[in-house]
Computed example of a mutant assay.
Amino acid sequence: MQEFAPPPTFPALVTTLRAAGCVFAEDEAELLLSAAADPAELAVMLERRTAGFPLEHVIGWAEFCGLRFAVDPGVFVPRRRTELLVRQAASLAPDRAVVVDLCCGTGALGRALTSSLPEAELHAADVDPAAVRCARRNVGAGGTVYEGDLFAPLPRSLRGKVDVLLANVPYVPTDDVELLPAEARVHEPRVALDGGSDGLDVMRRVVAEANDWLAPGGSMLVETSERQAARAAETVGSGGLVARVVDSEELYATVVIGTRPR
């Protein structure tokens, strides 16, 4: 008669995760236990996590702005620090906002914003087909997700009508990508990480067209690093937008906001 190993206990999970370098081993153990349907699935999840897969890819979801979003394998994981961008967008958006979420990944940013704006209109886009499939699941009937590069797939009818433009563009300088944790470097798409030689190449492309898409008084919001903020704000300003920088020590996050003059 075949004998099966008993499922790992909570302390055993914590020990294994901590040995693999998981800083928040207790929290992760709880999530794995709650996500696994049976001991066999738990064992597979534990193996994948200790092999370096992002926790969100292992359990299949991420919490962002108090909501749960599906995260498929190979799709960029929404970061908690990016909640600053959504908070700032919420403070600027009218009730019936037209919202565009570029480089949308899972679609978490746009959906989190419009969840508090029931009359908003959401359009999201990403160049990665896997991200588009994931975003469509998360957005559902709450908006439309397009596949394509930046503004290219969006309806031309949106030109000059966008109240809030979320652009969580990649901003890691090319030479720094190899310095990222393996979770990101190995398991997330490079197109979602690599921002070019100084990290601002994709942002420049967004800025070059943003003024044509924003409504008068509308705002573009991009995340960047603290060291890139001054140059990013200068770039946003060069695109005809009024730029300002918002920092959060709590989230260790920096957002550059560019507003089209009325």
Score class of each variant (00 low, 15 high):
230 A>K: 11
152 A>Y: 10
100 V>Q: 00
59 I>P: 08
162 V>W: 03
261 P>H: 13
189 P>G: 04
20 A>M: 13
24 F>T: 14
76 F>V: 09
55 L>A: 12
54 P>T: 07
105 G>N: 01
85 L>P: 01
104 C>G: 06
208 A>C: 04
74 G>H: 07
145 V>Q: 07
102 L>N: 03
204 R>D: 09
61 W>L: 03
15 T>R: 12
157 S>Q: 09
163 D>I: 06
241 L>M: 07
3 E>G: 15
42 L>D: 10
217 G>H: 04
118 P>R: 00
177 V>M: 02
141 A>Y: 05
156 R>D: 15
63 E>S: 15
115 S>M: 01
140 G>W: 05
30 E>R: 14
220 M>T: 07
6 P>D: 15
122 L>W: 11
44 V>L: 13
107 G>A: 01
222 V>F: 00
185 R>P: 11
168 N>P: 11
170 P>F: 05
166 L>H: 10
117 L>W: 05
223 E>P: 06
126 D>T: 11
215 A>C: 04
20 A>L: 13
38 D>C: 13
234 E>W: 01
96 R>S: 14
124 A>V: 01
167 A>V: 11
120 A>G: 01
148 G>A: 09
109 L>A: 07
137 R>E: 14
35 A>F: 08
173 P>Q: 08
41 E>G: 14
47 E>Y: 11
68 R>Q: 14
30 E>F: 12
94 P>T: 09
187 H>N: 05
150 L>H: 04
90 A>K: 10
229 A>D: 03
110 G>A: 08
163 D>L: 05
89 A>P: 04
216 P>W: 09
1 M>W: 12
57 H>G: 08
262 R>D: 15
2 Q>H: 12
252 Y>C: 15
102 L>H: 02
92 L>T: 08
4 F>K: 10
150 L>C: 09
230 A>Y: 07
32 L>P: 13
138 N>Q: 06
79 R>N: 09
241 L>G: 01
261 P>C: 12
234 E>D: 14
243 A>L: 07
29 A>S: 10
195 G>N: 01
14 V>D: 10
192 A>I: 07
196 G>P: 02
15 T>H: 11
221 L>W: 06
195 G>K: 00
137 R>C: 09
104 C>I: 02
109 L>M: 08
147 E>P: 13
89 A>E: 13
89 A>S: 07
188 E>G: 02
223 E>Y: 08
235 T>H: 00
100 V>K: 00
53 F>C: 04
66 G>A: 09
54 P>S: 07
180 L>P: 13
95 D>R: 10
221 L>Y: 08
194 D>Y: 03
207 V>T: 06
108 A>H: 05
73 P>H: 08
196 G>R: 03
20 A>F: 15
136 R>W: 02
19 A>Q: 15
183 E>V: 05
69 F>Y: 15
236 V>R: 00
12 A>R: 14
12 A>C: 07
53 F>R: 08
183 E>H: 02
21 G>E: 15
46 L>S: 11
257 I>S: 03
